[in-house]
Simulated assay, not measured.
Amino acid sequence: MNDAPPTTTSYEAATARLEEIIRRLDSGEAGLRETLDLCKEGRTLVEFCAGELEAVGRGLQELRLDDLVARLEGSAPDPAAAPSPANASTPAPPSPPTSDNLPF
């Protein structure tokens, strides 16, 4: 029996096969050799599923980190708030004088 799941196995297919294995073992109808083979296959499938879950978890973590970095850097500016090229070089008007910035 091959201990590695096929490379085309999906997480969903692996969990479905695990359910079949569990049903077969729970039935008590499997002989000694079949029980051993089913346990080996089940262990391989569990390891495969754990790896898939870890990969998805890392992907989700990366998405959250990217989102956090984008928010911290403000790298997702609102296009409506960006200055247009026509008035991008126009300086802001001077602020009106106050008692704090008068020369006397």
Rank of each mutant, 00 (worst) to 15 (best):
C39P: 00
P6T: 04
D3V: 01
T7V: 13
N87W: 04
L102Q: 08
S99R: 08
D3N: 02
P93E: 07
A92L: 05
L72M: 15
A14T: 03
R43T: 13
G51E: 05
R43P: 00
C39M: 14
L38W: 13
E34G: 08
R43Y: 09
Q61W: 05
D26Q: 13
V69F: 10
R71Y: 05
V69R: 15
E20T: 14
S27D: 12
V46K: 15
Y11K: 10
I22A: 13
T44C: 12
R17G: 02
E54S: 12
L65P: 00
D100C: 04
R64H: 14
D66L: 10
G74A: 05
L65V: 03
E54P: 04
S10H: 00
E20F: 09
L60V: 11
D78A: 05
R71G: 04
P97M: 07
T35G: 14
G59N: 11
M1A: 02
D78L: 00
D26N: 15
E34D: 15
S84C: 03
R43K: 11
I21C: 06
T9Y: 02
P103N: 07
E20S: 13
E20G: 10
E41V: 09
T7P: 02
R24S: 14
V69L: 11
D3K: 01
L72E: 13
D26F: 00
E20C: 04
E34A: 14
D26C: 01
R58A: 05
N87K: 04
T9P: 01
P96I: 08
L60S: 07
A86C: 02
P77F: 10
T15I: 12
L18D: 09
A13H: 04
E47N: 11
L36E: 12
P85Q: 06
R24F: 11
P103L: 12
T90W: 09
E52A: 08
T7F: 02
R64I: 08
E12N: 10
E29D: 14
G51I: 07
A13N: 01
P94F: 02
R64E: 15
L63V: 04
A76T: 05
R23K: 11
A76I: 06
G59S: 10
A16R: 05
D3R: 00
R33D: 14
A30C: 13
A82V: 07
R71L: 12
A30M: 10
P94C: 05
T8P: 00
L18G: 06
A80E: 13
R23N: 07
M1L: 02
G51Q: 03
P79E: 00
E20Q: 14
L18E: 09
E20V: 11
V56T: 12
E12Q: 15
A88H: 04
L68A: 13
P5W: 05
E73Q: 10
R33E: 15
L65T: 06
D3Y: 01
E47Y: 06
R33N: 12
G51V: 08
D26E: 14
P91N: 08
R64K: 14
D66V: 06
E52Q: 15
P77M: 09
L72H: 01
S75G: 12
G28K: 03
R24A: 15
A80V: 08
E62N: 14
L102T: 05
I21G: 06
P91E: 02
